[in-house]
Amino acid sequence: MSGTIAARLKALGITLPEAPAPAANYVPWVRSGDMVYISGQISQGAEGLIKGKLGADMDVAAGAAAARACALSILAQAQAACGGDLDRLVRLVKITGFVNSTPDFTDQPKVVNGASDLLVEVLGDAGRHARSAVSAASLPLGVAVEIEAIVEIR
């Protein structure tokens, strides 16, 4: 992973995780033309799954950190789709964030900002994206956040 984005990651002190393997019968990403559709990436870090329910046992800051972890996995999947060279990424088109939250929790956008902020910090203007941030009654394995993405590559 050499190039401008690799240098930016290094300057930010960020090491991408290995692209997570699928947990069921699906592929981690699909390329169609110049578009890559990245399957939902669940919140996980070096210590394992980041679990919780926003509005019950997790606050917005912890939720945003979980979303940031999802964004790192999105970048790892994008790197895999680009054959290891993230400089082939033209732009992040859209993300959809699912937040495991109580019915009365309404700060899903603030949680998903954890991912959006990181992606813009790493990718600059190419990281500015359309997005949705929605509530989910539960998510796989009890994780706090799941985010899928669409990216354009060359």
Score class of each variant (00 low, 15 high):
Glu47Lys: 13
Phe105Pro: 00
Gly48Pro: 00
Gly97Lys: 03
Val27Met: 10
Leu16His: 06
Glu18Tyr: 12
Pro103Ile: 01
Ile42Glu: 11
Leu123Phe: 00
Ala81Trp: 04
Ser116Trp: 08
Leu139Gly: 00
Gly127Tyr: 01
Thr15Asp: 14
Ile153Tyr: 04
Gly124Asn: 09
Leu86His: 03
Lys10Val: 05
Asp59Thr: 04
Pro22Gly: 07
Ala24Ile: 07
Glu121Phe: 05
Ser116Phe: 13
Thr106Val: 13
Gln79Tyr: 11
Ala56Met: 09
Phe98Leu: 15
Ala76Trp: 08
Ile5Gly: 09
Ile153Gly: 06
Ala137Arg: 08
Gly142Lys: 02
Arg88Ala: 12
Asp85Cys: 04
Ala149Trp: 11
Lys53Ala: 07
Ala149Glu: 09
Asp117Cys: 11
Leu16Gln: 05
Leu139Met: 00
Ala115Gln: 06
Val134Thr: 11
Leu118Thr: 03
Ala78Gln: 07
Ala46Gly: 12
Val120Ile: 15
Phe98Lys: 09
Tyr26Phe: 15
Tyr26Met: 06
Val120Phe: 08
Ser138Asp: 08
Thr4Leu: 13
Gly52Cys: 06
Lys94Ala: 11
Leu16Glu: 03
Ala133Phe: 09
Asp87Glu: 02
Ala7Ile: 07
Gln41Lys: 13
Ile38Asp: 09
Met1Ser: 14
Arg91Glu: 14
Ile5Leu: 05
Leu139Trp: 00
Gly33Cys: 02
Ser32Thr: 14
Leu141Ser: 13
Ala7His: 13
Ala67Thr: 06
Arg88Tyr: 02
Lys53His: 02
Phe105Trp: 00
Ala130Val: 11
Leu75Pro: 04
Leu16Thr: 03
Ala115Glu: 08
Thr15Leu: 08
Ile95Thr: 15
Gly142Phe: 01
Ile153Met: 05
Gly33Glu: 01
Ala23Ser: 15
Asn25Gln: 12
Ala7Leu: 09
Glu152Arg: 14
Ser73Phe: 11
Tyr37Leu: 13
Gly33Thr: 03
Leu86Phe: 02
Asn25Pro: 03
Gly45Asp: 13
Gly52Asp: 04
Ala137Ile: 04
Ala144Asn: 00
Gln41Ser: 13
Ala66Ile: 03
Ala69Asp: 03
Leu54Thr: 07
Ala81Gln: 03
Gly84Thr: 05
Arg88Asp: 04
Tyr26Gly: 11
Pro103Arg: 02
Ile38Trp: 09
Ile42Ala: 10
Ser138Ile: 00
Tyr37Thr: 09
Val151Trp: 02
Asp57Lys: 01
Gly13Gln: 08
Gly63Met: 01
Arg154His: 12
Ala65Ile: 05
Pro28Tyr: 06
Gly55Pro: 00
Lys94Asn: 14
Ala21Thr: 11
Gly45Met: 11
Gly55Thr: 03
Leu54Tyr: 03
Asp107Trp: 06
Ala62Tyr: 03
Ser2Val: 10
Ala81Met: 02
Pro17Lys: 07
Val112Asn: 11
